[in-house]
Design a protein around this nucleic acid. Sequence first.
DNA 1: AGTGAGTGTAACCGAAATGTAATATATATT
DNA 2: AATATATATTACATTTCGGTTACACTCACT
Lengths: 229, 229
Amino acid sequence: MNAYRILVVDDEEDLCEILQFNLETEGYHVDVAYSAEEALKLDLAKYQLLLLDVMMGEMSGFKMAKILRDNPKTATIPVIFLTAKDTENDRLTGFNIGADDYISKPFSIREVQARVKAVLRRYARIAEEVQEYVLLTYEGLTMNLGNKKVTVDGSEVQFTKKEFEMLRLFLEHKNRVFTRDEILSRVWTDDVVVLDRTIDVNITRLRKKIGIYGKNIVTRLGYGYIFES
Amino acid sequence: MNAYRILVVDDEEDLCEILQFNLETEGYHVDVAYSAEEALKLDLAKYQLLLLDVMMGEMSGFKMAKILRDNPKTATIPVIFLTAKDTENDRLTGFNIGADDYISKPFSIREVQARVKAVLRRYARIAEEVQEYVLLTYEGLTMNLGNKKVTVDGSEVQFTKKEFEMLRLFLEHKNRVFTRDEILSRVWTDDVVVLDRTIDVNITRLRKKIGIYGKNIVTRLGYGYIFES
DNA sequence: AGTGAGTGTAACCGAAATGTAATATATATT
DNA sequence: AATATATATTACATTTCGGTTACACTCACT
């Protein structure tokens, strides 16, 4: 069985070392980063759990978690916050961002081990069941990421891969402008080179397929496209 | 689309040439320095990526990277180390300093190209994600960089790209005079040449659009324009 | 080989954005 | 006050941008 990969992000090096040692003893693979900025450079999608210090360097753990939540590739990774601050307020902020648990410093290693185990168990179960049935919707538009089906006002519409991925991008980030370059890098593979205008053509095709909702894909002249809700 | 600027720092001239040639073929703009000392004389902030040799002349790549990390203007520039030494120890030193990647000599050009591409993509992504939340404001003026919308005292106003970028420049640097040349170089792409007078016209347009706040864009006769708060 | 879906490219058109020139106004200089 | 210089404004010309259509190419599957 493949070991779970855990990333610890904390600016206290000693603490990182302790966590790393003890969690690796438990059989996890543990990486460490000493700041949110450093952590964001990593390919975070490969971790099954993040332990984030709330108070550190430039970017707080909360901010980092927020960034993760908005990227589909990392949005579902469970997060446990570590913090010295144990006010009710912080706890709430944490849980609002989608914290899976919350550990206050100082903590016992046993406690950390127990919570990590619990979160991972929960995550494993949910990952299996839920992942397949993720639905993206906007009013009468629904995309089923599991079976790749799209329905527009109740009736199913056949989508091509490009159309599907573009609409997915838009529905995952409504009200955010995507430049053609961004769309290109997210929907097309790196090894192909296509003209900017290709996007336009595919936008036209997408708009047609989603009927009335085509109007929600708005052109931002000079910048790109945006799905407005 | 603006090309990424990469700086290669290595004392082996042949190697530099090879890297420069191959990366320029990929569409990047590549500069070269033959020592850390030489590199540090350059305006490093303009680069989006540094390739640093670890073993060279007086100052090592590690030392140079450390200097960069301590200067806020260069602290976030991604670094890839090039080295003949491939001990675990060196790798760790590198990553601790905040290396984004690590390439051991001898390496294949393909490998370098792939890693450079990967690092730049990661950075572009992070920059995008961060930008998504940025709101620039001044009293009743707000600019949303994520969806490129501007509101003036509550109501949305349509902006063209030039108008948007100019206002963005002003709001990001309130109370700072911008000469026409500076505005030109920041808002216009390098490949176009326009008259100075063009700025004036666009300033007029911008002033109109932001209504009452048009008065905050003040003309500094003989110098340029300033947004006064 | 033949077929059809998926996808990229080229070309045309209209609309929006942007640049330029001409003119008016303001500010500085003597 | 007169003149020169700098900027504002307007109207118009040009360029850029995006929507759309038709068509070509590729690839998987017969």
